[in-house]
């Protein structure tokens, strides 16, 4: 059943929406959740090597974006309250 894959794709597209809407906390949470599902699919649900390769590449992309959001949020928190 590829509902985990579908779930991962849904989460990733929601994350991108929140990201665009500048809801970075929400986007960060959703990117993490999406990668968790993608990772589960790569590890436990048989996929062709090509599919695994592209899922891992997606994970790397989302993780990179999530890290940037996390950095931004940390810095923003430190910024003196307006």
């Amino acid at each position: 059943t590829n509902n985990n894959l579908q779930k991962a794709i849904d989460l990733a597209s929601k994350a991108a929406q929140e990201d665009k809407a500048q809801n970075y906390e929400e986007a960060l949470r959703l990117y993490q959740a999406a990668v968790q599902y993608f990772l589960h699919v790569v590890k436990y649900e048989a996929q062709g090597d090509k599919a695994k390769h592209s899922i891992r590449a997606k994970c790397a992309e989302y993780l990179d974006r999530a890290e940037k959001l996390k950095e931004y949020l940390k810095k923003k928190e430190k910024a003196p309250p307006a």
Partner: peptide
């Protein structure tokens, strides 16, 4: 050079690093 794809373990590690606040 061929873009080296990230490994499952590396993904797992980064995910954990992210989650840790």
């Amino acid at each position: 050079a061929k873009k080296s794809t990230i490994s499952d373990d590396e993904i797992e590690r980064q995910l954990r690093a992210l989650g840790v606040d």
